[in-house]
Design a protein around this nucleic acid. Structure first.
Lengths: 127, 127, 127, 127
DNA sequence: GTGGTCTAGACCACT
DNA sequence: GTGGTCTAGACCACG
């Protein structure tokens, strides 16, 4: 697992949270599966156990994982998570489109262009 | 001009940059028009001239303004700026939609939902 | 005569000096010819007579002009000027080439590329 | 590292930027290597941390370095940088030669003189 | 310890 | 008056 981009200006723990969230949402990490131990993940990414600990705490707070003392950390089996992410993306989308509208740019046209772009990329890229 | 939201966690200078960029893109500030002096804007917003100075430097770097020593700072007459902003928004949109697609969410459906959302808000809001 | 670029960050008087020097060296302004009066040049360029005065003083100091009280300012008939400018350009060239050499770039090759570039431009451009 | 010439009229931060850029381009500072901390460099050069900070920000903006919060600033591993610098020098050269041509001076002859000059200096100087 | 931001106050060049 | 630079000293987030 390569979770950290050292050139990224965002805090390390935040990058770890986001990376693992993405892995869970994409079903690479399945519900019930055990996450790497704090120590091993820290070793593997050449970072401080405290930093990984902070990331795991945040993950649990957001409902993506649960902890069993003496056993480890596991992926939550919540299927509410995807719905929540969908809402999040929808909000982000609306925000961008609203800004475009404010500037006199047709949001619908922008949308269709963006859709074409990703479909084109998907065919040639990693689809 | 009310450019700063003190509850916003982003740096002051960055908020100033974004606010003025928006004013320029929305044609509230017209090409050739003089921007407030560093000192007056600092006074008006109860901040430090250095902070405003940093914001103005960034604006100029991005091509939104030009400086005449001893005279003041002026809005650039570039009509390329809007096109650049459009591209920027388009990239943002595509990024969000691509992320949705990765998660198995239909981007087109998400788009249409977002468009409905902002049209609804526009009617009741600031349209 | 359009001598000033208001977006240029250099001082006005310096721009005027450089512009007039160029006009003299390119023989647009001929030896013995009278330069515009301080007042008229100030009017024409929407700037302050003091600024033009400062430029004229600098021009005279550099030997490009001489003043006759009550008559005006005239272009010096020195043909030493061109030789001096040649030396100046030569120094600039050497400096650039030396910097290239320090970086491990072949100066001779760079030179021949530059020569090609300007010959190409001259044919299509203002030759 | 002796980065500042106090007799130089250019801003301190600009001198720092240029000095470090040169060190990077000459491979004295290698990709991935850590730059001195803002504070230590400020101490070493008897200047203010803010000034060094401004220099480092500019370096990063130009793509010569990247920052990891809490870790330090590192030399970018871009090998595009040298090519970019070469283009920059080439442009400078062409500009000088074009100016010479405008004045009726043979650019090729000027070039060969400059090349002789630097070769002579190199033998007697720091070659 | 690191870099990032901000304030207060100063001096400079230019108009 | 304008912007540009610099210093001194402070606080913050991150590791």
């Amino acid at each position: 697992m390569d979770l950290i981009d050292w050139r990224d200006s965002r805090p390390i723990y935040e990058q770890i949270v986001e990376s693992i969230k993405k892995l869970i949402l994409m079903d690479v990490l399945r519900p019930g599966e055990q996450l790497p131990s704090v120590r091993s993940l820290a070793m593997e990414n050449a970072t401080n156990p405290n930093t990984v600990q902070k990331a795991y705490a945040e993950l649990e707070r957001q409902g993506f994982s649960y902890t069993v003392r003496g056993r480890g950390v596991f992926v939550a089996d919540n299927n509410v998570l995807k719905e929540r992410k969908r809402t999040e993306l929808l909000d982000e989308l609306s925000e961008t489109l609203r800004e475009a509208a404010d500037l006199g740019i047709d949001p619908a046209k922008l949308c269709s262009e963006a859709l074409s772009a990703i479909q084109g990329a998907a065919k040639g890229g990693n689809a």
